[in-house]
């Protein structure tokens, strides 16, 4: 935690970077704390979402990037829904994860959080919808925790929470197209 903030700390490009990536403006936040108040994961976070927003306002890059808060965020969007200034805080957390990944920073609590996020996205890209069995299998394989949550599988099968096969294979390509289009837009080509 930094205890002294100087002019040069505030005039960094970090705030602009997060604002551009997330499309949200930190000037709107008046630090009311409603996001932290309602966050179901706040108990596990090193800094509540309100603090993260404050750090971003002041351009405190190190504190934000090295915080586990963005990685722990479950994207439940309780904060986004209730924010009186209509800031999409979950989107900011997403942007912070992307920046951390770009900088090669892994979550401290559990580096596999980042791995999970990656597998989740590639799973979605492939199957159009989340194929849980594939997701869990890949994650356990790559994280080296082969039998993690293994005991829970039978009950979930019985309750039809886990499907044996992925969803309709004829529609897989649709979501892939969306992914491709988004990537293309990000490159600044074909923006519509």
């Amino acid at each position: 935690m930094k205890w002294e903030i100087k002019t040069e700390d505030i005039h960094t490009s970090f705030r602009d970077e997060v604002e551009e990536l997330s499309g949200e403006s930190f000037g709107a936040c008046y630090q009311c704390g409603k996001c932290s108040a309602g966050c179901p994961i706040a108990f596990a976070m090193d800094h509540g979402p309100t603090k993260i927003m404050r750090f971003c306002q002041l351009g405190m890059e190190d504190e934000v990037i090295n915080s586990d808060t963005p990685w722990l965020c479950a994207s439940c969007q309780a904060c986004t829904t209730r924010c009186p200034r209509e800031i999409d805080i979950a989107e900011v957390m997403d942007a912070l994860r992307i920046i951390a990944k770009r900088r090669g920073i892994k979550p401290r609590t559990d580096p596999d959080i980042a791995l999970f996020a990656e597998i989740f996205l590639s799973n979605l890209r492939w199957f159009g919808r989340i194929y849980e069995l594939g997701l869990v299998g890949e994650f356990n394989l790559l994280s080296g925790r082969f039998f993690k949550d293994f005991g829970k599988a039978p009950a979930m099968f019985l309750k039809r929470k886990l499907a044996l096969l992925p969803s309709n294979p004829f529609k897989w390509g649709k979501v892939r197209e969306i992914f491709k289009k988004c990537e293309k837009m990000k490159e600044g080509e074909g923006r519509e």
Partner: peptide, 19 residues
């Protein structure tokens, strides 16, 4: 100093989730 996020009833009390 914080806005309350949610109020709900629990065992005759009102639970205040604040910050």
């Amino acid at each position: 100093r914080g806005r309350v996020s949610r109020l709900y009833r629990d065992n005759g009390k009102v639970v205040v989730k604040g910050a």
